[in-house]
Design a protein around this nucleic acid. Structure first.
Length: 379
RNA sequence: ACACGGGUGGCAGAGUGGUCAAUUGCAACUCUCUGUAAAAGAGUCGCCCUAACAGGCUGCGAGGGUUCGAACCCCUCCCCGUGUA
C-alpha cells in the first residue's frame, strides 16, 4: 500500500526548517500552526472561516470527542472530516493532556507553564486569592495507574478507563490523519522523582500505543519535565522509536526552560521526522522554537484570547480607548454588547494572524533571513 | 395649590437607628490565560495615608433637630413622578 503520509524538509536556515507534511487530506507547509478544534470545532469558526484564514491543518481532541458525541457516532457519520466538514488534515491529541489538566491540573490549579519557581511552590498552590473559580471543582477527574488513566467525565460523572489502546482505537475511529501516542503530561510542580516515574510510564504507554496503531502516522511524545537527563532520554526514546513524528510535551515550566529543553533534545532528534511542540503558541515562543528546529505548533491561545477580546499581536479591543476608534469601534461594541459575532470576528483575526505569521516565518527561512524576522518580533 | 410616592456612590437600584464607606447589577480600570471543563477567571472601584493591616477625613437632595449614636426618626426648604383640582 502506498504511503501517503510523508514529511520532508525542503529548506533550512541554520536549525530552522521549512518542510512539507503530506497526508491523504493534503499537504501542509511547516513551520505550521494548528488551530485547536477540541470538540470538532475551532471555537466560533466554521470550516469556511478556517479556509479563508488560510488554515491548513487543525488539531482535535480524542478524549473530548470520545465523551461527546462518541467515537462510534462520528465513525458512523463518516469520520471526523465529514462530521465537521473539514477536508484538510487533522491531528488528534490523545487525551494525554487531559490526564494532567483534569487530574493534577485541577487539583493544584496549574497549567503546564507557570510563573512560580520551583522553590516557591511550597508556600501555597493558589497564590493571589483565587477562591471563586466556578470551573474548578477541586476534585481531580483523572487518576493514573500503570495500566492507564481513569477519567471521571466532567460531563456526567461517569467513569472511563482510558488506556493507550483505547485512545488509539478512538483516534482511528475518528479518522484522524495524524494521531498522538497516549502519554501523561507532567506538571511544573512535579519533582524529579515523579517526573521520572511518569516519563517511564509514558514511554510504556507510548509503546503500547504504537502497537495498537498499525500505521506510522503517530507522534510519540517527549516528556521529562525540566530535567535534562530525562528530556534527553525521552528524546532518544521517541526519536528512535517507530513513530512518524516527534511530539514535545509535558511541563515546559517557563519560556526560558522551554528553550533549554529544546536545546537539550535537539541533537537527539531524527532530522527526518517532523517535530511538534505540543500546546505552544505565543509569538515569541514560536520564534524561539522554530529557531531550534520545531516544525509544528498548536495552541489554544490565539482562539481563547480572541474570545476575551485580545487581538494579536497585542490589542485589547474591550478597552474604552477603542470606543471611538474607527478601526476598532465596531468590534469594541460587539464585545461590550456580548454579541456573538465578536467572538467570530476576533477569532478569525487571530487565526489569520497566526497563519500570516507562519507564512512569513517560512518565507524568511527560505530566504535565509529568519534571524532578522525574529528580531522584529521578539523583544 | 392639595394628596400620595420618591430624592443613596458614574448610572440603575438595595438598605430604613448601631454589625454602613454603604448589598447587588452595569459602566470603568488592572491582571491572568501556552497539547481548551474557558463566549473564561481574579482583583480594584469616595478622598488621604500604607507594601499591606491599621488609621484619618468627607458622605446617602439642602439646612436644622432628636439620640450616646442617623442614609435610616422629626421639622423646614428645594427638586422629581403620579393623581386631584
Amino acid at each position: 500500500m502506498m504511503k501517503s503520509f510523508k514529511f520532508e524538509v525542503v529548506a533550512q536556515d541554520k536549525k530552522a526548517r521549512v518542510g512539507k507534511l503530506m497526508s491523504p487530506h493534503g499537504a501542509v507547509e511547516t513551520p505550521a500552526f494548528l488551530p485547536v478544534a477540541t470538540q470538532a470545532s475551532v471555537k466560533a469558526l466554521d470550516t469556511r472561516d478556517l479556509h479563508e484564514a488560510g488554515v491548513g491543518m487543525i488539531l482535535s481532541n480524542t478524549y473530548h470527542l470520545y465523551l461527546r458525541p462518541g467515537a462510534d457516532t462520528i465513525a458512523k457519520l463518516g469520520g471526523l472530516h465529514k462530521f465537521m466538514g473539514w477536508d484538510g488534515p487533522i491531528l488528534t491529541d490523545s487525551g494525554g493532556f487531559q490526564v494532567f489538566s483534569l487530574g493534577f491540573g485541577i487539583e493544584h490549579e496549574v497549567g503546564k507553564m507557570t510563573k512560580l519557581f520551583s522553590g516557591e511552590i511550597s508556600g501555597g498552590l493558589n497564590p493571589g486569592g483565587d477562591q471563586g473559580s466556578t470551573l474548578a471543582v477541586r476534585t481531580k477527574l483523572c487518576k493514573v495507574e500503570e495500566e492507564g488513566p481513569t477519567f471521571q467525565s466532567h460531563l456526567d460523572g461517569s467513569v472511563h478507563f482510558f488506556p493507550p489502546e483505547k485512545s488509539v482505537a478512538t483516534q482511528i475511529k475518528l479518522g484522524a490523519d495524524f494521531i498522538v501516542a497516549l502519554d501523561e503530561c507532567t506538571s511544573p510542580l512535579h519533582d524529579y522523582d515523579y517526573t521520572k516515574v511518569s516519563m517511564e510510564r509514558s514511554h510504556r504507554w507510548e509503546m503500547r500505543s504504537l502497537l495498537a496503531a498499525r500505521d506510522k502516522n503517530m507522534f510519540g511524545v517527549i516528556q521529562g519535565g525540566p530535567f535534562k537527563d530525562l528530556r534527553v532520554a525521552s528524546a532518544k526514546f521517541v526519536s528512535e522509536g517507530d513513530f512518524f513524528g516527534v511530539g514535545i510535551g509535558g511541563a515546559l515550566v517557563n519560556k526560558k526552560i522551554m528553550r533549554e529543553i529544546l536545546d537539550w533534545i535537539g541533537p537527539h532528534l531524527d532530522p527526518a521526522k517532523p517535530r511538534h511542540l505540543l500546546g505552544i503558541g505565543a509569538i515569541d515562543d514560536i520564534f524561539e522554537a522554530v529557531e531550534r528546529g520545531v516544525d509544528i505548533f498548536d495552541c489554544v491561545t490565539p482562539t481563547r484570547l480572541a474570545r476575551a477580546g485580545l487581538l494579536l499581536p497585542n490589542i485589547d479591543v474591550t478597552k474604552a480607548v477603542y470606543k471611538d476608534d474607527p478601526k476598532f469601534a465596531y468590534l469594541h461594541h460587539l464585545f461590550r454588547a456580548r454579541e456573538l459575532l465578536a467572538y467570530r470576528l476576533a477569532t478569525i483575526h487571530n487565526v489569520k494572524f497566526m497563519m500570516n505569521l507562519m507564512a512569513d516565518i517560512r518565507q524568511s527561512i527560505m530566504e535565509k533571513r529568519f534571524a532578522k524576522l525574529k528580531q522584529k518580533w521578539v523583544k
